[in-house]
């Protein structure tokens, strides 16, 4: 882990009409650190993720990312071109539904290679070798490189989506309920895979989840959101084993195996 955070947000707020979706949310994230954002549906988790990832402009507050070459940059003040470049180089975004993050009409290899091609890679052989490498990294058979994601199971699609994001070796990955659409047995495998990748690649990640078990296995730190506000933060074992806020206690008490 390095000495400075790579992402910091201060005073984030967002309203949808009369409803307050996010209020006074601040956080810092370091390289190699996984932060789980937990809370019920409607707690503002996904809104927070969208604001952090530059996909939704907050009504107030700032989000800054420490870029490789230009130091701190305000995510919402940078040009769309600059943000898009960031999105396909240093960032990844794993959607809950793999279909939202994949191109379902092209092969697995093309899905993985797209970021490289968008960055100007023009050697077919190299792009294909990279795609095969990352397919193996997500524990998929390289022989399936030319298959369409339509032929894949939900778990495989999710792994493909992850490979597609990792091919440029991002430093920060946003994940929106990455396991919740999957069967329990498939979930365990995916969590384990993510855990290994995050550690091996020293990724920073923000994982939005309502599954405390997933948070326990993946995250170093946790942030509990309720009605758009942070009610508790701490190391994952602190929040889950010694919850302070009434809402966190209720959340932990009602989970099957946190």
């Amino acid at each position: 882990m390095s000495e400075a955070p790579i992402l910091r947000a201060a005073g984030l707020a967002k309203r949808f009409g009369a409803r307050l979706a996010l209020a006074e949310v601040s956080l810092e994230l370091w390289e190699g650190e996984v932060l789980a954002v937990v809370g019920e549906s409607g707690s503002g988790k996904s809104t927070l993720l969208a604001c952090l990832a530059g996909r939704m402009a907050p009504d107030a507050g700032t989000v800054e990312f420490r870029t490789r070459h230009e130091g701190w940059r305000d995510v919402h003040a940078m040009s769309e071109a600059a943000r898009r470049l960031l999105e396909r180089t240093d960032w990844g975004f794993v959607h809950q539904r793999p279909e939202d993050g994949l191109r379902m009409t092209v092969s697995a290899g093309a899905n993985i290679g797209e970021r490289l091609m968008a960055l100007g890679a023009r050697r077919y052989g190299w792009i294909r070798a990279q795609a095969a490498h990352w397919l193996a990294q997500v524990e998929m058979d390289a022989a399936r490189l030319d298959e369409s994601p339509l032929a894949f199971s939900g778990g495989m699609r999710q792994r493909l989506q992850i490979a597609r994001n990792l091919v440029t070796r991002p430093r920060l990955v946003f994940m929106d309920e990455p396991t919740s659409g999957l069967d329990v047995s498939v979930q365990a495998r995916l969590v384990d895979l993510l855990r290994g990748l995050v550690r091996r690649l020293s990724l920073a990640a923000i994982v939005v989840t309502h599954d405390l078990g997933v948070a326990r296995l993946l995250a170093h730190r946790m942030m509990v959101l309720k009605d758009g506000r942070v009610v508790e933060t701490g190391l994952t074992d602190q929040v889950l084993d010694d919850p302070h806020h009434p809402y966190t206690q209720q959340l932990v008490a009602s989970a099957l195996a946190p």
Binding site: G234, L235, D237, Q238, D241, D242, H244
Partner: peptide, 9 residues
């Protein structure tokens, strides 16, 4: 023990 380890605050 858990306080020393920091799990309990």
């Amino acid at each position: 023990l858990k306080c020393i380890y920091g799990t309990y605050r």
